[in-house]
C-alpha cells in the first residue's frame, strides 16, 4: 500500500498513470509519419482535416479499449481539465495558423522576403520552431517528460534533415524527410511503453474488481 499523503503527488500520480500507456506517443508519431508520407506521396486527398478529427477520436477509443480496463476510470478536477483544454486549444490554433501561413507564403507577396530565408533554412526554422515547440508544449502541459525528450531529439533531426535533403525540393518535402523518422521513432517508443504498461497492469477479472 502506498504511504504517501502528499495531495499534489497523489493527484499527479493519478494523472501520470494515464500517460504510462504510450498511446499519446503512438498516435502523435503516427500522425507525424503519416503527414510526412502524405507530403512525399502523389496522393491528392486533403487528409489534414481527417487527421485532426480522427486522431483524437482514435486516441480516445484506444484509451477506452486498452487503458481503462487496466487502470480504471477517473474524472479529474477542473484545474487539470483546463490544462488539457489549453493543450487542445494550442494544438488547434497552431495547426490553423500553419495552414494560413503556408497558404500566404506560397501565394502572397507580403511574405516574399521570408520566402528566400524559409526556402534556405526552412527545415530547421519550421521544424524546430513549430514541430519541436508543439512536442515540447504537449510534454509540458501533459507532464509527459518523454515529449520534451522528443522535442530535444527533433532539433538535431531537423538540422540533419536540412543538410541531407536536396535543396531543390520544396520546404514541405524536405520537412517530410525529417518528420517520417521522428514519427517512426515516437511510434516505436510508444509501442515499447504500451508493452510495458500492459505487462505492468494486466486486466483484472470482473470478480476481482467488483460489481
Amino acid at each position: 500500500m502506498s504511504d504517501s499523503f502528499d495531495l499534489d503527488s497523489i493527484e499527479r500520480r493519478a494523472y501520470l498513470i494515464y500517460n504510462e500507456d504510450g498511446l499519446l506517443d503512438l498516435i502523435t508519431g503516427f500522425m507525424m509519419a503519416f503527414i510526412g508520407y502524405y507530403v512525399l506521396s502523389t496522393v491528392d486527398i486533403p487528409f489534414a482535416p481527417f487527421l485532426a478529427i480522427f486522431g483524437p477520436a482514435v486516441w480516445a477509443s484506444l484509451k477506452k479499449a486498452v487503458t481503462e480496463p487496466r487502470i480504471g476510470q477517473v474524472k479529474f478536477g477542473p484545474g487539470r481539465r483546463s490544462r488539457q483544454q489549453k493543450v487542445i486549444m494550442a494544438f488547434a490554433v497552431t495547426v490553423n495558423v500553419l495552414l494560413v501561413l503556408s497558404f500566404f507564403v506560397d501565394t502572397g507577396p507580403v511574405f516574399g522576403p521570408w520566402r528566400t530565408t524559409l526556402s534556405t533554412y526552412g527545415v530547421i526554422l519550421v521544424g524546430s520552431g513549430v514541430v519541436s515547440l508543439i512536442l515540447f508544449t504537449i510534454g509540458h502541459f501533459n507532464e509527459v517528460s518523454r515529449f520534451k525528450q522528443y522535442a530535444a531529439i527533433s532539433v538535431p533531426m531537423f538540422v540533419v534533415g536540412h543538410f541531407l535533403t536536396d535543396p531543390g525540393l520544396d520546404l514541405f518535402q524536405r520537412l517530410a524527410y525529417a518528420l517520417i523518422p521522428l514519427g517512426l521513432l515516437m511510434m516505436a517508443y510508444g509501442l515499447v511503453t504500451l508493452w510495458r504498461f500492459v505487462r505492468k497492469y494486466p486486466k483484472l477479472e470482473d470478480v476481482e474488481i467488483g460489481g
Binding site: Q73, K75, I209
Partner: peptide
C-alpha cells in the same frame, strides 16, 4: 484530488 474514480482505479492507486 479527483472528481470521481471507479473501483479499479482506486485499487490501482492505493494498492
Amino acid at each position: 484530488v479527483v472528481e470521481s474514480a471507479d473501483f479499479l482505479f482506486l485499487m490501482r492507486q492505493t494498492g
